[in-house]
Computed example of a mutant assay.
Amino acid sequence: HEGGRTYCDTSRVWIDDYRKNLVMGLAPGGVVKTWLMGVCTDAIEVSRVQGRIVEKGPDQGRTNGRYALELEPESRAYIDKFGIPYGSW
């Protein structure tokens, strides 16, 4: 919650700013990292967690022929055709 004074290389000025962006990254093996970032401020890693496979998959099962999570038709067609490569996460 604390702001900070930092030098911004792109504009070559000193600014007072906050880290106000939470960025998430997904890596192979199901590792998820999050960083707190801001304009011209160094990123701070705030978490690193290991994901796990949910046995029912991303849809959590179908209800009355509908998926629990509604996806765009193109996305749904791709998943129906190729599945989700859980092992590659």
Rank of each mutant, 00 (worst) to 15 (best):
G65C: 03
G4T: 11
V23E: 06
I79G: 00
K33N: 13
G25Q: 14
R66E: 14
D9P: 14
E2N: 09
G65Q: 01
R12A: 12
V13W: 05
K20V: 10
R66M: 09
V54T: 07
G30C: 01
V49R: 08
P58G: 13
T41P: 04
T34N: 04
G51D: 02
I15A: 00
L26V: 14
K20T: 14
R66I: 07
Q50R: 05
M37A: 13
V39W: 07
H1F: 11
A68V: 10
D9Y: 12
Q50I: 02
R48N: 06
V39N: 11
D42T: 13
G4Q: 13
C8W: 02
G30I: 02
W35Y: 09
E45D: 01
N64G: 10
Y7R: 01
P85H: 12
D42N: 08
D16W: 11
E45M: 11
M37W: 05
W14D: 07
P73F: 01
E70H: 04
T6L: 06
M37Y: 04
V32W: 01
E45Q: 13
D9R: 12
G65D: 03
W14R: 06
D59I: 00
Q50P: 01
R5T: 13
I53G: 05
K81L: 09
N21L: 15
H1C: 11
K33C: 12
D9K: 10
G30R: 00
R48G: 01
P85E: 12
L69S: 03
H1T: 10
P58W: 15
S47Q: 10
I84N: 02
S75Q: 15
Y67E: 04
R48H: 04
R52N: 07
D80S: 01
L71Q: 05
K81F: 07
G57P: 00
T41F: 03
Y67N: 08
V46W: 02
T6Y: 15
G61V: 00
L26F: 09
R12E: 11
L69E: 06
D42H: 08
Y86D: 08
G25K: 15
E55A: 12
D17H: 15
W89L: 15
Y7D: 03
R5G: 07
G4P: 00
I44H: 05
K20G: 12
